[in-house]
Design a protein around this nucleic acid. Sequence first.
DNA 1: TTGTATGCGTTATCAG
DNA 2: CTGATAACGCATACAA
Lengths: 338, 338
Amino acid sequence: MADVAREAGVALGTVSRVVNGQPVGKEYRKKVEDAIARLGYRYNSSGRALRTDRTNSVALIIPNTINPYFASLVHHINIELEKRGRRGLLWLTEYNQKRENEVISMALQNRVDGIIALTYNPDLVIPDSIPFVTIDRFFSVSVPCVASDNFGGGWLAANRLAELGCKKLAFMRIGSTLTNEPSKRKEGFVSACVKLGLPFEIMTLEDGAPMREFEDFLSAHQHGGRLDFDGLFFGTDSLAWRMIQVLRRMGVRVPEDVQVIGFDGIRMFGDQSLIVSTIVQPVQEIAEACVSTLLSRHLSGVPSLICLPVHYEYGGTTLDRPDEGSPDREGDPSDSAC
Amino acid sequence: MADVAREAGVALGTVSRVVNGQPVGKEYRKKVEDAIARLGYRYNSSGRALRTDRTNSVALIIPNTINPYFASLVHHINIELEKRGRRGLLWLTEYNQKRENEVISMALQNRVDGIIALTYNPDLVIPDSIPFVTIDRFFSVSVPCVASDNFGGGWLAANRLAELGCKKLAFMRIGSTLTNEPSKRKEGFVSACVKLGLPFEIMTLEDGAPMREFEDFLSAHQHGGRLDFDGLFFGTDSLAWRMIQVLRRMGVRVPEDVQVIGFDGIRMFGDQSLIVSTIVQPVQEIAEACVSTLLSRHLSGVPSLICLPVHYEYGGTTLDRPDEGSPDREGDPSDSAC
DNA sequence: TTGTATGCGTTATCAG
DNA sequence: CTGATAACGCATACAA
């Protein structure tokens, strides 16, 4: 910047003012802009950050970018931040709880303006010095949590399966140890089944337990080549996808013998069709909510749980007519905890 | 840091030395560490960056994080950078050429130690001030390019289809306007077909042209419900996946009527099975090559094109026996341009 | 409106 | 081995 000032024959402060778009005499501005172009000057973010104590950046802490749902979140959150003149700093944790806390430290070192985190870590140390927003995990009323309507989604899934003629359902999911928002998928499902008077079973696999146990569960419920269930609801699309492979190996046809609904709304290449019939999470709205909540933290009255609506969408593993418009909501759970 | 010094009753320089792990008297170190813990001190990255002129960060410029192949690259590159004590700064471009150049400017402002970019932009302005590595796009001998063996992959695909009994092949892809490394997939495919004496057709869709044209191409080659081709090779898994849906709508069975091979090696949830039979790109090796090349740029003799081996893998859309070990390489293209 | 000078938090140099 | 101090690039309060 000193070089530019010398080159333009003006003072340092004038250059700074030009760079920051503050009022500067017309001919001075011209001289400075020419000098900047001539020298190819770019301001130094570190210097500016040090001086202003603002980095215009937000930490995004997430397990990985391999899972398509996470990848989609990363994408949309980055877009939303960009819209508001901020940058996202990505940190991957692979669910490592020690690393999750380290990463928060690093974010603090980087003087980020806020943190958005997706972690189920019960021992997460949440700094009170900067705005913090979580996704899918409620910590306390002072930490806003953005999630989709998991309870409503479970409710919706059960209702849809019932509508499609299912007589006996099952819900299967991974990860019972930690209570988080996605846990409510089960509760919504159970409530609906009870209300509908539909028999059902719940199968929960502890984190880290072998997949094999799911297969055993299904085998145990297969008699004479016939599965006891005609409708399955899975905690995630990922799990649904995997178990569909297992079902096919078992000689069970999807959706003819058993209809399957997942949760998330994973699309193979972003904008394309779903991989299973599913409860779709509004990823873009979730991203928008995270960012706007984080950046308006100075305003009081931020709700501590922001719950976004989900909807059902056909994806080939149920017996709907694909072209029939599916209503956005049905059998609304009036008692949704969300 | 001044606060810590005061709290510990030592000088500023001593605190700095403790923070940086330089030799400090035992009792002094203890006093400083206690003070740091007491005050919850974290060093300020901006201050350090300003002073040292090193940010230990690397820019990663990529179209988006929705495409699973890109998402996977982002993941592995971040891991590799982490291993080497660097941070990745992610910038998404959505193929916007103006933005691609802007983003390079921003990276420069951030004083990154290097840039890794995946862009096909012919007008990309590559700064000569810092190390720059591209993925899948060769610019000049002074800019190292990391890519997989696209020519060899095309060759491999044709050979595999021939082995599996195909008599008439076709290759379909998007994006002819720009010459990049993936363009060589076609060349490898054609070479192999010619060598094998196998009839084939090539169908290229300009960027932005409607998908419809692919469907028309296929329809035009369907006579009496029967497709003229019994083997299809696609430029990417994404395209293969989409066209398989089209084929099924046309009443063509995959793989019974026509066998399909894609390119990339997209896995549904990172570690799981492929979505189509495909030529697998070694994503992790690509990430490793990008990072190590970028960070060893001071050494002379960096090759300008780093070409990593691909392999074929069964993914359900061909007639291989899934359990039969597929040799890593076959019909090696001795004239591979790579 | 423009110039000058100070300090942000850190590291490095140099004197003790 | 430790303490004091200058300098990194920038924004801003104050003086001109």
